[in-house]
């Protein structure tokens, strides 16, 4: 084989090995780090495997948000407005557009008591936003007008002006 061809062969083999290796790694690592999404009906049906990080989503049920008086712990319920409701527990700061009636996503694990322990709560920074994951649910409940409650009640903070 002439040296030019030989060099080209080496290069081809090298590139094939590298791309095969990279592809293999990509599949492996993304498999370990991907979060499946579960709509409320699947959550209620117990389809979430225990101790696995997943995403779930739904509309925040009106009147279900309960804040602790001493810490940042908060509990609320997510629903698809079609009978499936599940509890979510979270500790931390909720996004600006977290409102009752709003569609949101939660990321975390399901505990033994059937409460979704959220590590992250996601809502988009836009009034008209609906996470694509929730579009299917929303389509079925177009008639169900949900009104957005303000996340800040101005009266709550009136007292402490400086």
């Amino acid at each position: 084989m002439n040296p030019k061809r030989k060099q080209r062969l080496y290069l081809t083999v090298f590139l094939l090995v590298v791309s095969a290796g990279v592809t293999g790694l990509l599949i492996l690592v993304s498999g370990e780090n991907m979060n499946m999404f579960y709509p409320p009906a699947d959550v209620v049906a117990g389809k979430i495997p225990p101790d696995q990080k997943v995403r779930a989503g739904g509309m925040v049920l009106e009147g279900s948000v309960m804040r602790s008086d001493t810490s940042l712990a908060v509990e609320f319920q997510l629903t698809d407005h079609q009978g499936a409701i599940f509890d979510v527990a979270f500790s931390g700061i909720l996004p600006d557009l977290f409102r009752e009636g709003q569609g949101i996503l939660v990321e975390g694990t399901m505990d033994a008591q059937g409460v979704f322990q959220a590590e992250e709560v996601l809502a988009k920074h836009d009034e008209n936003y609906m996470p694509p994951e929730l579009l299917d649910i929303e389509m079925g409940t177009q008639s169900q007008a949900y009104k957005a409650l303000p996340s800040i009640d101005p009266r709550a903070a009136k007292g402490d002006s400086l």
């Binding site: 790694l25 690592v29 780090n33 499946m36 999404f37 995403r55 990321e107």
Partner: peptide, 14 residues
């Protein structure tokens, strides 16, 4: 037909 998300740890690992 299912939905997944791929998070920060995936990118960091590489």
């Amino acid at each position: 037909g299912g939905r997944i998300s791929i998070g920060t740890p995936f990118f960091n690992k590489f």
